[in-house]
């Protein structure tokens, strides 16, 4: 009974609902439609237009299309790019930077940031440096762990790699993460 609900919830909570962009687009569309409706009624009643009468507006667009000017082309390109962005947004998965951490009695979703902060701590302990000097970034399927060493210090890179792997092994997260430990020598002196 709950398995279906859990997989649905995990899927929905790890991906964007695209509600915000849909609502914004719907609002803009509604405002444009309201303007069209007002202009149409005003024109039908023979009243002066608010911004442009429908006949003039349509004529202007068609004239512009038959004799293209630079500004019109630029505007058209902008419209096309906005359209392309909307199409891409509507088709892309929209991951929310969190991942499933297993389902049994409860379904758990963990923020990537929580994982990154924990791994910074783990790597700091393993490498005997302050967690503040470990920069961790969690991507789609991999974790970058950068140890920012102070000049003259050395670190057991393999040991850090091992302990980060051990830490991640206990997480049971999907999508799984592969750690990559690097050492940066440009660390600042504090």
């Amino acid at each position: 009974m709950t398995d279906g609900i859990y997989s649905r919830l995990v899927r929905r909570e790890t991906h964007s609902s695209r509600s915000t962009i849909a609502i914004v687009v719907a609002l803009i569309l509604a405002i444009v439609l309201a303007w069209i409706a007002v202009e149409s009624v005003l024109a039908a009643l023979g009243q002066p237009a608010l911004l442009a009468a429908p006949a003039d507006a349509v004529k202007a667009v068609l004239d512009a299309a038959s004799a293209p000017a630079g500004a019109i082309v630029a505007g058209a390109v902008v419209v096309a790019v906005v359209g392309l962005i909307l199409v891409i947004v509507s088709l892309s998965p929209g991951r929310r930077g969190r991942r499933s951490a297993g389902v049994d009695r409860t379904a758990v979703v963990v923020d990537d940031r929580v994982i990154a902060q924990r791994l910074a701590q783990t790597a700091g302990y393993a490498g005997d440096i302050s967690p503040d000097q470990v920069k961790v970034s969690v991507g789609g399927g991999s974790v970058d762990v950068v140890l920012e060493l102070q000049p003259g210090r050395t670190v057991d890179k393999a040991g850090v790699q091992r302990s980060v792997e051990e830490e991640l092994a206990g997480y049971d997260i999907t999508p799984a993460l592969r750690p990559k430990v690097r050492v940066s020598e440009k660390g600042s002196v504090r």
């Binding site: 609902s17 695209r18 509600s19 962009i21 849909a22 687009v25 719907a26 569309l29 299309a65 293209p68 019109i72 082309v73 505007g75 058209a76 390109v77 902008v78 419209v79 096309a80 790019v81 906005v82 359209g83 392309l84 962005i85 909307l86 199409v87 891409i88 947004v89 509507s90 088709l91």
Partner: peptide
Amino acid sequence: NRLFVFLVGLVLLVAGGGVAAGA
């Protein structure tokens, strides 16, 4: 949500792209 955003995007893309290509 996705269908709506896709359709609006497609209309804008075709309209804008059509005028730009025409020019």
